[in-house]
Simulated scan of single mutants.
Amino acid sequence: MSTAEVRAFWQGLGLPGLVDVHTHFMPQNVLDKVWAYFDAAGPLTGRPWPITYREEEGRRVERLREFGLRAFTAMLYPHRPGMAAWLNGWAADFAARTPDCLHTATFFPEPEARGYVARALDDGARVFKAHLQVGAYDPTDPLLDEVWGLLADSGTPVVTHCGSGPAPGKHTGPGPIGAVLARHPRLRLVVAHMGLPEYGDFLDLAERHPDVHLDTTMAFTDFTERDSPFPPAELPRLLGLQSRILLGSDFPNIPYPYAEALQALARLGLGEDWLRAVCHDNAARLFALPPAG
């Protein structure tokens, strides 16, 4: 599907554009390592994963604007101590020169975490990313308790890869992050990838916690349905949670054109009101975007 067809998708719904809460921008040396991992079809994937939008940074930003994204994120994450503060510095600079990017930050369980998370919030961070699989850390680590508290108190959304797909980690699944929510019930958690493959468990979590959201990243696409199909019996629950499901894509690291994510959502047959909420309105409200004009 061409760029024109992507635009026709949201224009046909009467929307002013799309809001994607799960796009990746990060320092090029870090992104190169991410791409090399997917090129090798690493142990978590087990099959070819071509990067559809392997382009230089400026072109990737331009492409999202051509698609009609009103806002997007710079999801980035550390895999070891001493990395998060540096990533946050890069992300603050990226947001300053990319006004349609929601200023993104991250953290890791380390003594410095509370301090640099507080600084990121003071500097205007609007969304955080936590990757429990890549980071391989326990979200209930005492070093993170004040971090979760700061984020809950500030109402800042935290997009969190906490599901066990594409392969389980020591601290993935609904249990560990559920324990965080039990201690910080006002945390605005955004469960990445709809929590795949534990879809039902994470829908349960969202139904119990009114500030929990889910993003659609890679869910429902042919690529994901092959190994982690969404249970058809759970589809009515997506209507019940219509106001708390957000569009996500994993751009640029997706093994198919961007439009396939939109087509997959339309194929669910949940109606145009649901699509409008998921593809724009919910995130526009969550991030208090100004009216389109």
Rank of each mutant, 00 (worst) to 15 (best):
H209E: 05
V30P: 01
M83E: 15
G173N: 10
P257Q: 04
G68Y: 12
R7A: 13
Y77V: 08
W90D: 01
A95C: 01
V30Y: 14
G12S: 12
T224L: 10
T217M: 01
H161A: 04
E207T: 08
F9P: 03
T217H: 01
I177L: 06
A179S: 14
A292Q: 11
V134M: 12
L247P: 03
V158H: 11
A266V: 05
Y77E: 14
C101S: 15
A91M: 08
A40S: 14
G135F: 06
L151D: 01
H131W: 07
E272I: 01
F107A: 00
K129P: 14
S249Q: 02
L31A: 15
L289N: 03
R114Y: 14
K129C: 12
L132I: 14
G42V: 06
T217C: 11
S2R: 05
A288I: 02
T3A: 09
W35E: 15
V158I: 11
A284Q: 08
A283K: 00
A125Q: 02
D227P: 00
Y256A: 03
L13F: 06
A41R: 12
A266Q: 14
H131L: 06
L121H: 06
R183N: 09
D122Y: 12
Y37Q: 10
G165Q: 04
R63H: 11
D39T: 10
L44A: 12
M83A: 11
C279N: 07
R276F: 11
D215F: 04
T156Q: 13
R285T: 07
R97F: 04
A259T: 14
H213T: 03
A40Y: 00
T52N: 07
L205R: 10
G135V: 09
R126V: 03
E260A: 12
A264C: 04
N282S: 05
V21R: 02
T73N: 10
A130H: 11
L247Y: 15
I51H: 13
L275A: 10
Y116N: 05
D204Q: 09
L262G: 01
C279Q: 10
R186T: 15
F9K: 01
A120S: 15
G58F: 03
S164E: 09
